[in-house]
């Protein structure tokens, strides 16, 4: 399959079909906590996208070059002490969680300093939720998803490269932003609604989130349809090309 097509499908899949918040239900904490205003929600989405990209870059690099069995860096070092055959079998994937959390925490620290310096009002409105991106499971989830496509894949051609990993991360972040901004828009309108007493506050927010998740289920199958359309057109071209060649030969 065409590389660009694959990238496109990964992007659409991460942003819409398998939306982190509304399909996997990760990252609910900021999704509920910071979705009072559209502006703040958009800022939060951008911060998460930024952090998720940095974390994905770091985790892909570390996983590919150090953690997987037969990774270049670790086996090169190990060859000084043991035989090459044994060195290529060293498996450091047990470190994955701690390394990812490490990478995420550092990038959150970086983003916090950056936002505080250049966007003080945004920093004020984030409050405690900015450092809490560290524990945002959406980001760890993205890292683990990327790891799943690197470690334990039988066919070496199917192993994800940096481009695919970053696409997943960035579009996962975009999907998070879309979800949280839609949610904030709804909640801004919700303030003017006459909600029955028992539903007020967190209850109606969770109900709205559930309905939103159901709405996003409508995207299911978009990727396979898209794939069919795009690959079919290439196939048709090839057939036509063959046909033309055939005619020329005749």
């Amino acid at each position: 399959m065409n590389y660009l097509l694959e990238i496109l499908l990964i992007g659409i899949g991460a942003a819409l079909i398998n939306n982190f918040v509304l399909h996997y239900f990760v990252g609910i904490c900021p999704f509920i906590g910071v979705s009072r205003q559209v502006v703040t929600a958009f800022g939060m989405g951008c911060a998460v996208t930024f952090v998720i990209s940095i974390a994905a870059f770091l985790s892909w690099t570390v996983t590919t070059y150090i953690l997987v069995p037969g990774a270049p860096l670790s086996s090169w070092i190990a060859e000084f002490f043991i035989s090459a055959e044994r060195a290529s079998r060293i498996d450091l994937t047990i470190l994955s969680y701690i390394v990812y959390i490490f990478a995420i925490a550092s990038s959150v620290q970086f983003v916090e300093m950056y936002v505080r310096k250049f966007f003080p009002p945004l920093y004020q409105s984030f409050g405690v939720f900015l450092p809490l991106i560290t524990t945002n499971c959406a980001i760890l989830f993205a890292c683990l998803l990327i790891m799943g496509h690197i470690v334990g894949v039988d066919n070496p051609e199917d192993v994800w490269d940096l481009g695919k990993s970053l696409t997943l991360a960035v579009f996962g972040g975009v999907g998070f932003t879309i979800a949280i901004v839609i949610m904030a828009g709804i909640r801004e309108e919700l303030d003017f609604c006459d909600i029955p007493g028992p539903f007020r506050g967190a209850a109606i927010t969770l109900v709205v989130a559930g309905i939103l998740a159901m709405a996003f289920m409508g995207f299911t199958g978009v990727d396979s349809g898209l794939k069919k359309v795009l690959t079919l057109s290439t196939v048709e071209k090839t057939i036509n090309g063959d046909h033309l060649d055939h005619m020329k030969n005749n």
Binding site: V62, I66, L67, S74, I77, A78, F81, I82, A87, I90, D91, L92, I94, L95, I98, V99, F102, A103
Partner: peptide, 15 residues
């Protein structure tokens, strides 16, 4: 021992 050393080295290097 090599695995342990590499693990420690990885985290130290990242740190």
């Amino acid at each position: 021992w090599v695995t342990i050393g590499l693990s420690a080295g990885t985290l130290l290097g990242m740190a």
